[in-house]
Design a protein around this nucleic acid. Structure first.
Length: 480
RNA sequence: GCGGGUGUAGCUCAAUGGUAGAGCUCCAGCCUUCCAAGCUGGCUAUGACGGUUCGAUUCCGUUCACCCGCUCCA
């Protein structure tokens, strides 16, 4: 795909997302706010389905993982212990002459120098630093920048009440590790799962919703016996890839990035990123890290509370090591939208043949005898609406009443959609655009034999099904 | 943060220093026996603030947002 083509595809997708209620710019009426996005009716369903699928796979279908929902604002000491207060920053420098930008530490190392810090811990360039590209010494000094959002707890606004919006949900898990252990009767190896918002004051939000300042994480901390880290890390990488396949991101469209030893944090023994081929590049959806006992040890040190685990079987006492699969809900939502998004030319006459033709974004010309169909091919478990119900004609009360009955039955079990407006073809296409996998139409034959047509989104094929068998038939596809 | 681009209706686009248009969508009605048909009617817009001007959507400035490149992404 050419760069232009990718750009056109993302633009077409963003336009659809707004038109059909998936994603809106936040505070749009006030001109928007950089790095923040809202989800409309369809987007809210989509995200909920992603989170439900994750929770189901990680918590409900397993015996060794329990859930947690910790506060967004934690005690500030949390972030001292986690290292975010100190190290959650990447000072940058710019060359005034050639406009190149560097990370300050890398900029210095490249010329055999070391980034210095003044008495306020503010970074500054050492003597003699110059731009490696053009040799200029006219460098904009490094700007220190902590990515945590600050706020104040209570009426006083001073350093005694300073607090932070969490930059990750994980630390809430570590901080409650003892309580969870005491109440839930879990034994190592076990995990604590959490879904929630996190906040990072990114320097440069980019790529639609990909890098946002407010985002949702789905994190698991899986506590294991020291020494079994590698084995469990491999296990979770495989497990997570299986999950992506289940929600409609096949392994062929994902990539694994295995960190080299020199790229790992000093306490980590392994890290694998799961990447997806977005139109704007191959980018991270999830990081799966083996973090040793760094986090629990740090909280033990900063809180003075023991984080040791006593193994009844072996009579050993240890601080468990942890494997952390940490996924971004919004990034997965965007990946699913990109993966599902298809525009195709569908034939309206024999001139065009019978097969739909995918749109060529470099040359989006309409073939003769065709019209455009936009369709989101979501996996049924992810689709915001599972089934739409239509009476064939809206001015025939018998059809409308009969269809209404079918709708009332189906909506008790799934998110369903009722539509009587316009020609039947138009109603099908509207559902295609929001990715509804099934359409059920009540026609005149229904009044005679109690069968309806069941139309499948991707193939547009229809089969006749007894109303009484509809639910079971849908369940097979939706709830697998 | 730097450089480039773009902001007009829900979407895609047009136009103009002097009444802002179209197509699609959406809503209502009619019609319609399975894939965006047709007819009638309707709602909706110059991102924000300031300046120049008799008059600014148009020119100028500032700002905000989005896209691209650089950069960054624990």
């Amino acid at each position: 795909m050419s760069a232009q083509e990718k750009n056109n595809k993302l633009e077409a997708l963003a336009s659809l997302c707004k038109r059909r209620g998936f994603i809106f710019q936040t505070s749009e009426i006030y001109g928007g706010l950089n790095g923040f996005w809202d989800y409309g009716p369809m987007g809210a369903e989509l995200k909920r389905n992603i989170k439900d699928a994750w929770w189901k796979a990680m918590v409900h279908e397993r015996e060794d993982i329990v859930g947690l929902d910790s506060a967004i604002i934690q005690h500030p000491r949390t972030w001292e212990a986690s290292g975010h207060l100190e190290g959650f920053t990447d000072p940058m420098v710019d060359c005034k002459a050639c406009k190149k930008r560097y990370r300050a530490d890398q900029f210095c190392e490249e010329q055999g120098l070391k980034l210095e810090f003044d008495e306020n811990k503010k970074p500054k360039l050492p003597e003699g630093a110059k731009c490696p590209a053009c040799g200029s010494k006219d460098i904009i000094p490094p700007r220190a920048f902590n990515l945590m959002f600050k706020t104040y707890v209570g009426p006083q606004e001073d350093t005694s009440t300073l607090a932070y919006l969490r930059p990750e949900t994980a630390q809430g898990i570590f901080a409650q590790y003892n309580n969870v252990l005491a109440c839930s009767r879990v034994k190592v190896p076990f995990g604590i799962a959490q879904i929630g918002k996190a906040f990072r004051n990114e320097i440069n939000p980019r790529n639609y919703t990909f890098r946002s300042r407010e985002f949702e994480q789905m994190e698991l901390e899986f506590f294991v016996k020291p020494g079994s880290d590698a084995e469990w890390h491999d296990y979770w990488v495989a497990e997570r890839l299986k999950w992506y396949s289940r929600i409609g991101l096949p392994e062929g469209h994902l990539h694994r990035y295995v960190y080299g030893k020199d790229e790992l944090a000093h306490y980590a023994s392994a890290c694998v990123d799961v990447l997806y081929d977005f139109p704007f590049g191959t980018q991270e959806l999830e990081g799966i890290a083996a973090r040793g006992n760094f986090d629990l040890s740090r909280h033990q040190q900063f809180s003075g509370k023991s984080m040791e685990y006593f193994d009844q079987d072996t009579k050993e006492k240890f601080v468990p090591h942890v494997v952390e699969p940490s996924a971004g809900t919004d990034r997965i939502a965007l990946a699913l939208l990109c993966e599902a998004f298809h525009e195709e030319w569908v034939p309206t006459s024999d001139v065009a043949g019978s097969q739909p033709i995918p749109v060529d974004y470099d040359n989006p010309k309409q073939p003769q005898g065709c019209e455009l169909r936009t369709v989101l091919r979501f996996a049924p478990c992810i689709a915001p609406i599972k089934v739409a119900v239509f009476p064939l004609l809206k001015n025939k009360p018998d059809l409308v009443n009969k269809a209404r009955g079918v709708y009332d039955t189906l909506r008790k079990r799934w998110s369903a959609f009722w539509d009587v407006a316009g020609a039947i073809g138009r109603r099908y296409r509207r559902q295609d655009e929001i990715g509804t996998p099934f359409g059920v139409t009540v026609d005149f034959q229904t009044l005679e034999d109690d069968t309806v047509t069941l139309r499948e989104r991707d193939t547009m094929q229809q089969v006749r099904v007894k109303i009484g068998e509809l639910s079971e038939r849908l369940a097979v596809a939706i709830e697998k």
